[in-house]
């Protein structure tokens, strides 16, 4: 009996050790993929989008966020996470790609039009991304931050016919938020961030223009209402 008791205790110890040392691969954390899917499906569901889009995480160090037109897939790389400060900036990056895929999924003729005038559809996707973020409960000013951190900046002699400058895109986004959702700029959570301050320094004339145009518009409306 003593022998059997000793064997029993040893067997329990061996069971415990083997189960602790050899963990199944499913118990390993896959946090980035889960986070990307969480934010992506939140954006899709909040906006009532009726078509399927999938979200992938790539372990490449190069920072990129890609779409696959054929597979309707958004791939977010490991390298882009070093640029992101919070979930809202991740949502900004994903919403930009969802907005592009919405146009791609519209049909063959729309895809041809995107190929022939990519600059127009880029601005349209940027504005659509603002709507996607607001409906999902995110702050769209995060788009301006991430654009200032990552977008390219070409001069007029380095003119790129396929895409806008980073400063042009961020100015369009600011103009759209100012006209449609101005409360996000009036009570701005990102005002003291270095990236947003840098954006304010580099777009003084563009922001002044948006304010003057809106003031003119409000004047016209008040004049019409008094008449």
């Amino acid at each position: 009996m003593r022998l059997l008791r000793c064997l029993f205790i040893l067997s329990i110890i061996l069971l415990a050790i083997t189960n602790c040392c050899y963990s199944y691969p499913l118990t390993q954390t896959i946090h980035p993929q889960q986070l990307i899917q969480q934010t992506g499906f939140r954006l899709l569901n909040a906006n009532g989008y009726e078509k399927r889009i999938t979200f992938y995480y790539s372990s490449k160090q190069e920072p990129f966020v890609k779409i696959s037109n054929r597979n309707k897939r958004i791939t977010v790389s490991k390298g882009i996470f070093s640029y992101l400060d919070n979930e809202e900036e991740l949502a900004a990056v994903i919403s930009l790609e969802i907005a592009k895929l919405i146009d791609v999924q519209d049909g063959v003729f729309r895809r041809v039009a995107i190929g022939y005038s990519p600059r127009k559809y880029e601005v349209k996707a940027d504005k659509k991304a603002v709507d996607l973020m607001v409906n999902a409960g995110y702050n769209p000013v995060a788009l301006i931050n991430i654009m200032n951190k990552t977008a390219d900046e070409q001069n007029w002699f380095e003119y790129n016919i396929f895409s806008h400058n980073g400063s042009e895109r961020s100015a369009y986004i600011y103009n759209y938020i100012y006209n449609k959702y101005p409360l996000f700029i009036a009570k701005n959570d990102y005002f003291t961030d270095d990236e947003y301050q840098n954006f304010l320094r580099t777009t003084i004339n563009d922001r002044k223009k948006t304010r003057l145009i809106k003031e003119l518009k409000v004047k016209k409306q008040t004049d019409n209402s008094t008449k």
Partner: peptide, 24 residues
């Protein structure tokens, strides 16, 4: 010391003031 640049003054219409931030 960080010197903060002021943003442009926001012109709000009556409809803009009624806007409620949507919650998910």
């Amino acid at each position: 010391k960080k010197e903060l640049i002021a943003d442009e003054k926001v012109v709000l219409t009556e409809e803009n003031k009624k806007f409620k931030r949507p919650l998910y």
